[in-house]
Simulated assay, not measured.
Amino acid sequence: MARNQSTAAKRARQKQREQGGKHTELLRDEQQSPVQRLATALEAAGHTAEAQRLWDRLKPDPEWEAAKAAYERAYRAHEAAETAGATGHVLDRLRRAEEDAGEEMGVLATYEFRAEPIVCAAVLTGLAHAGRFDGSPCLRPAADVLAWHAKTALVWADGIRCPMPIIDHLWGPNRPGPAAARAAYRALAAATRLPFKGDEEWTACGELIEESAALARAGCQ
């Protein structure tokens, strides 16, 4: 075995020791992003439609990518002109070009915002599966996605409060993993149902996201 292994390689080796399987396939899974791992796990669990929605969300939006690139070019041109000491009409023109590109990017940024309910719904599906079945492949990737969004929970709180399918009575084995997954599911489901009224609901939503992430993480231990 190589002495200096990447974190992904070490995790793949550990999974191979604990669960068996091919190291190359396990390594590929570890090298995926959390959302990609969740999509892969949902496919393995039979939730192919939810997985496909996630894969579609991961595809780059051409308009968004073009707008980002245009803004970066305009920003660099404006910055270079200021550094070079440009003044007058030249600097005004470059500043206006940067502002226009920024506005266009801001309009198209709603693409990213619209994607958040898709990710949240996939996490809920993964937690529901993990709550029903001990040893579900969905628990850890769902926990990883939650952990990522819990870092900026108040940002995610603006993207997930919308109608989505919720299971009101989720049952499963009385084992630590499934029990934690069900508790995480309930917390995240409650977060999606909070209304857009003010800072109190916004803060409460963020706290529920963090709680859901902590519960899901505990279920993986």
Rank of each mutant, 00 (worst) to 15 (best):
residue 126 G to R: 04
residue 180 A to W: 00
residue 39 A to I: 08
residue 175 R to Y: 04
residue 66 A to W: 13
residue 82 E to Y: 09
residue 58 L to C: 11
residue 207 E to A: 14
residue 161 R to V: 03
residue 205 C to V: 00
residue 32 Q to W: 01
residue 49 A to Q: 12
residue 85 G to F: 09
residue 23 H to A: 06
residue 15 K to T: 00
residue 109 A to S: 15
residue 67 A to C: 06
residue 92 D to S: 15
residue 20 G to W: 03
residue 154 L to N: 13
residue 93 R to K: 14
residue 98 E to P: 09
residue 98 E to I: 06
residue 5 Q to D: 05
residue 82 E to H: 11
residue 152 T to E: 10
residue 220 C to G: 03
residue 166 I to D: 00
residue 92 D to Q: 15
residue 207 E to T: 13
residue 175 R to N: 06
residue 83 T to H: 12
residue 133 F to V: 10
residue 186 R to N: 13
residue 112 E to V: 02
residue 67 A to Q: 06
residue 203 T to Q: 12
residue 139 L to W: 03
residue 153 A to G: 09
residue 71 Y to C: 05
residue 79 E to Q: 13
residue 142 A to G: 10
residue 130 A to R: 02
residue 32 Q to I: 01
residue 14 Q to G: 07
residue 175 R to F: 02
residue 121 A to P: 10
residue 87 T to R: 13
residue 6 S to V: 05
residue 5 Q to I: 03
residue 152 T to P: 08
residue 130 A to E: 04
residue 149 H to L: 09
residue 115 A to C: 14
residue 196 F to H: 15
residue 134 D to C: 06
residue 85 G to A: 11
residue 101 A to M: 10
residue 183 A to Q: 12
residue 151 K to R: 13
residue 200 E to P: 06
residue 145 V to F: 05
residue 61 D to Q: 07
residue 211 E to G: 02
residue 165 P to A: 00
residue 129 H to Y: 05
residue 79 E to L: 12
residue 121 A to W: 07
residue 31 Q to F: 00
residue 216 A to D: 07
residue 28 R to D: 01
residue 137 P to E: 03
residue 187 A to C: 15
residue 160 I to P: 01
residue 49 A to P: 12
residue 24 T to C: 09
residue 100 D to A: 15
residue 34 P to H: 05
residue 61 D to F: 06
residue 122 A to F: 09
residue 125 T to P: 02
residue 192 T to A: 01
residue 114 R to S: 11
residue 172 G to W: 02
residue 69 A to Q: 12
residue 27 L to R: 03
residue 74 A to S: 08
residue 132 R to S: 07
residue 176 P to D: 12
residue 158 D to E: 10
residue 8 A to T: 01
residue 210 E to Y: 04
residue 119 V to P: 10
residue 172 G to E: 06
residue 9 A to L: 11
residue 109 A to E: 13
residue 19 Q to M: 11
residue 121 A to K: 12
residue 87 T to I: 12
residue 107 V to T: 12
residue 56 D to F: 07
residue 52 Q to P: 07
residue 83 T to K: 15
residue 64 W to K: 11
residue 141 P to S: 04
residue 208 L to M: 03
